[in-house]
Amino acid sequence: MEDITNQCAGLKLLEREGNEVDLTLTVRKNGCVLAGKFCTKRRVNLESVARVMKTVRRTKENFEVYDMGDNRVIFHFSLKEDLDKVLLLSLWSKYLLILHKLGAEEVVTKVKFNNASFWVQIHGLPTMCQTKEAGTVIGGTLGKVEKVDMDAKGFHLRGHMRIRVSMDITVPLCRGRLVRLGGPSPQWVDFKYERLPIFCYWCGMVDHDECDCIQWI
């Protein structure tokens, strides 16, 4: 190991390799490009998925899909409004598809697709506790709260309340939380995830189903 370290320490750029190339004027700072990754351990048939996506997602102009390997893709749009629409509403897929607006200095193979946004229903919370403040506090235990579905007065007087949260998908999904409402013991509330693609019922991860789960195997 020490020999390898010494050899690496002696490496240096050749004179020609050290010459810098200025690409400042060639960079597209506002390119209509989304990077995406399908959360599955299986190989995705990109051609088939892209065909379904273009049918389901009604954009004004067509968009191109490029396979980057390892279930990573690039979506190139002609119109920025189409990109914004897809980024907001996401794209339909059998598997969870995480989208990321690619910056001018980013490389798609180095983007960390660790976060995804979900609408989460909170069931079992008393009606008078279904406030924006309560949704923000509970959602904060899951990740970054992006929106709490409330009326103009800050209430959600229905059977459950809804919050949109950006969550770390490298950890299992949470089934619920214990909340304290001032009584002698905490109360359990259930989480239900809207439009959740394939996920594992055994371990709660979204990058595989139960057939590919190590715990199940």
Score class of each variant (00 low, 15 high):
N6H: 14
Q7W: 12
A9F: 08
L13W: 08
E17D: 00
G18V: 12
N19E: 10
E20F: 14
L23W: 03
L25H: 04
T26I: 11
T26K: 05
R28E: 00
V33A: 01
A35L: 06
K41Y: 11
K41D: 09
L46T: 12
E47C: 04
S48W: 13
K60E: 10
N62W: 15
F63R: 06
Y66Q: 13
D67R: 11
M68R: 09
D70S: 10
V73W: 01
H76A: 06
F77A: 02
V86W: 06
V86Q: 01
L89A: 11
L91M: 08
S93W: 07
L96A: 03
K101T: 10
L102C: 07
G103S: 05
E105L: 12
V107A: 14
K110F: 09
K112Q: 11
N115E: 00
A116K: 07
V120D: 01
H123C: 11
G124C: 06
T127S: 10
T127R: 13
T127I: 15
M128P: 01
K132N: 03
K132R: 14
E133A: 06
G135E: 02
I138D: 02
G143T: 07
K147N: 13
D151F: 02
F155T: 15
F155E: 07
F155V: 15
R158V: 11
I163D: 00
I163H: 03
S166M: 13
D168F: 08
I169R: 07
V171P: 01
P172R: 04
P172V: 03
R175Y: 09
V179G: 00
V179W: 05
R180M: 13
L181N: 06
L181C: 06
G182C: 00
G183C: 08
S185E: 12
P186L: 12
W188F: 15
D190Q: 14
F191A: 03
K192A: 03
K192N: 04
Y193D: 05
E194R: 07
L196Y: 01
I198G: 04
W202G: 10
C203G: 05
G204M: 08
D209H: 06
E210W: 05
C211I: 15
I214K: 01
Q215F: 10
